[in-house]
Write a protein that binds this DNA or RNA. Structure first.
Lengths: 123, 123, 123, 123
DNA sequence: GTGGTCTAGACCACC
DNA sequence: GTGGTCTAGACCACA
């Protein structure tokens, strides 16, 4: 796993795990990889993963059974989705519109985007 | 000027100045506000502005006449536009598509975006 | 470490570190002294060292592992050597020739230089 | 005339004028270009030239006749030569030897330098 | 007044 | 402990 410099590593790990939960890779009640396992997988210090898990636990996205591991919490996908969608409409979309205007991005430039959307809607 | 926590202040100042150049507020050859004037304007330390200007100078977006000030460099708008568009198509757009898919954003959700695009194109 | 007035301190620190890398004092992959440790060693402010390291990182001479430290980058010695030699042949040598001509420096004046060269070559 | 960023502009102007005196372009007693003329020639502020001339006057390399102009002083070439040669042997040459060693510059690399020297000596 | 560099000290995120 | 950023304030060279 590669990291950008702009965001914190622990944040990127959290985002990645949330993505996997949204994708159904981990379902509600599933055990997520242990701190040390996860750390080994992605090649970071286990403290960093621990911090990620602690943070996600605080957001009630995963829960901890002592001595056993961390598990995907009830309603985790919904909770993640809600936060993400809010961020999307509040920050991502407005920023995007500003950029499109400033950079003179045209409709044809984002044709692939539209196509993608159509497919998504027709499912 | 208000700052977000996610990016460095000096980066946001740079982005802001680039935006103004793209908008034509500062044309090629124009003097941009002096380091200390700019610092006073936006309420930051002059070192922070200095860092911004040094960085922009390295990117050949502004240039320096010693003891006189910083000036918008030749081709600065084109250069900014090129970088910004590249970032857009390489990072922003793919990320956006991933998010749309993941968050199940629908066509109607982004109707405002489409409308904006149409207007922009018909100008 | 003593500094000349002609160049910036941060530049002299950079040159010094590059010299050490060329001399093999720090090999590829080695950790270089931490920003604050280096600052203490040579009696300057940590910001000054930080500026040096940031610059050297931009030139891909050292690289950074977050929260751990700076390390001598792959190919750093070659890269330094290339830059230094280019500077030598493009600036130092022509300047030298001009000066020799202008100042009427004679062969015997630079005998020590020649001797040094012979020794170097015969090694 | 182009300027490097490493040295002060006024210093570079002074060096340039001294070079011309050594080359005999301006002989002892000759009038050197007026402050404003010189400023126009090389495209800098006249204050900068004034500072150069004041400095050179302090070093007794040029002298001022009020209302008429600046003139190359008695012994100016000798004086310049003395300073320059001292700088050469005290700083330039030792630095050069260090660099040659560090950069593994060989005899053949500096063959042009040697050739130049021979020619110079045989004159 | 304008850039440029440095110091001192603080605070944060991350390991 | 390690990098990274920012502030405050000072001093210098230059125009």
């Amino acid at each position: 796993m590669e990291f950008k410099n702009s965001k914190g590593i622990f944040q990127q790990i959290a985002d990645n795990l949330c993505d996997r939960i949204l994708l159904g890779e981990y379902s509600v009640g599933d055990k997520v990889p242990s701190v040390r396992e996860q750390a080994a997988n992605i090649g970071v210090n286990h403290n960093t993963v621990m911090r990620t898990y602690t943070e996600l636990q605080r957001e009630e996205i995963i829960s901890n059974k002592r001595g056993i591991g961390f598990f995907v919490a009830e309603d985790a996908p919904l909770r993640i989705l809600a936060v993400r969608r809010q961020e999307f409409f509040e920050f991502t979309l407005p920023d995007l519109i500003d950029q499109i205007e400033l950079l003179k991005i045209t409709k044809s430039d984002v044709k692939t985007l539209i196509t993608k959307l159509e497919e998504n809607e027709n499912k």
